[in-house]
Amino acid sequence: MASQRPAARPLSPHLSIWRWGPHMTVSILHRVTGSGMATVGTLLLVWWLAAIAGGPQSYAVFHMVFAEFGKGALGYIFGVGLTLSFFQHMASGIRHFILDTGAGYELNSAKRAAMATFVFSVLATIAFWAFLLGAK
């Protein structure tokens, strides 16, 4: 049987021909923040449930770790990071909801909406932590 050359098929565009934009960053961050929060949340939930199932001593250790961890700088960094991830994921989800209606696909409006998610997430995180620290 004679070998046949495969038909020339169109190639998909490579990343090198696309200009990087904020909408691409928001899309990637949406996936990263969602996966990160799901992973961290699952681990904490399993640890909490295991601590409850382990009895009062086990739960006291869990509570002590979180009480001490939350007082240090690392605890604040972790908390601010999770808060920023939450607000970024939420803002990006709202952006995707609006895109699902068919609106916002024009290049300028897509860029503005992507930038708005960054601005919102940073401002909401600052406001949230200002409220928490001001309540003490």
Rank of each mutant, 00 (worst) to 15 (best):
M24G: 02
T83E: 13
S121R: 00
A130R: 08
T83R: 04
F97T: 08
I52Q: 06
A60W: 05
A91R: 03
L132R: 15
Q57A: 13
S109Y: 00
L82S: 05
L45R: 04
L99H: 09
V65F: 15
F62T: 04
I126D: 00
P6C: 05
V40P: 07
V65W: 11
V119D: 02
T33Y: 09
G75L: 07
T125F: 08
W48Q: 10
T125Y: 01
N108S: 12
M115H: 04
T117D: 14
Y76V: 08
V26K: 12
A91S: 13
T25D: 01
A2C: 01
M64W: 12
G36H: 00
T117N: 12
P6D: 09
Q88A: 07
G104K: 00
M1D: 04
K111V: 14
S92A: 15
K111A: 11
L44N: 12
F78D: 05
A124Y: 03
S35L: 08
A110Y: 04
T33I: 04
R112H: 02
Y59G: 06
A130C: 14
G70T: 10
I77Y: 14
K71A: 12
R31G: 05
F66L: 05
L99Q: 13
T83Y: 03
G134F: 10
L49E: 04
V119E: 07
T83Q: 10
M24K: 11
L133R: 09
L11Y: 11
T42A: 15
G72L: 01
F62Q: 06
K71M: 12
Y105E: 01
L82D: 00
D100M: 15
Q4P: 01
I98N: 03
S16P: 00
F128E: 05
H89C: 11
M1V: 02
Y76L: 13
K71E: 14
T125N: 04
V119K: 00
S27F: 05
Y105V: 06
F97D: 07
G36F: 02
Q57C: 05
V61G: 06
P22Y: 15
L49F: 03
Q4D: 06
T25I: 14
S109H: 07
W20A: 09
L11D: 09
R5S: 06
F87W: 13
L84I: 02
M90H: 13
W18S: 08
Y59K: 13
A103R: 12
V119R: 05
P13C: 01
G104I: 02
I126P: 01
G81N: 11
A8V: 11
S121C: 10
I98L: 12
G134A: 12
I126L: 13
L15F: 10
A127N: 06
T101Y: 01
R31Q: 03
Q57S: 11
A53R: 11
L44P: 00
R9D: 07
A110I: 02
R112G: 02
P56F: 04
V61F: 07
S85Y: 05
H30F: 08
S12K: 08
W129L: 14
A67R: 10
N108Q: 14
W48N: 15
A8M: 03
G72I: 07
W48A: 08
